[in-house]
């Protein structure tokens, strides 16, 4: 019984959230600003022809480091879950 109520509650919340999201997207499509685009596109040509590479390796190179660390951590956690380097002797 409580399960059904919980499901109903979750359904109402999800429906409300999705309607809100669609509405917000409709509004936001009119207020998109290009922001720092000019700086990147003007300064980036002095560094490398591919602007996306210039952004991810030069302006935001530190994010790229974090992202590669995530991949490393994920690989390590997968091996850990499969039983390498655990603290006890379970499994």
């Amino acid at each position: 019984m409580s399960n059904a109520i919980r499901n109903l509650f979750a359904a109402v919340i999800t429906a409300l959230l999705s309607i809100t999201l669609f509405d917000a997207v409709f509004h936001v499509s009119k207020m998109i600003t290009p922001g720092v685009s000019n700086i990147y596109n003007a300064l980036g040509t002095k560094i490398a022809p591919n602007m996306v590479t210039a952004v991810i390796f030069d302006f935001r190179g530190y994010d790229t480091l974090g992202e590669s660390i995530i991949l490393l951590t994920a690989g390590l956690v997968v091996l850990l879950v499969f039983g390498r380097g655990r603290l006890g002797g379970k499994l």
């Binding site: 290009p34 685009s37 000019n38 602007m51 995530i70 994920a74 956690v77 997968v78």
Partner: peptide, 28 residues
Amino acid sequence: WFASNASYPLPYGLVLTSIVIGASTLAV
């Protein structure tokens, strides 16, 4: 001319990072 006509590279850079994050969490 390029600077005023090219599309906005910052979101593309963010998405590149985000795609790999998604794949990593999926694997775990």
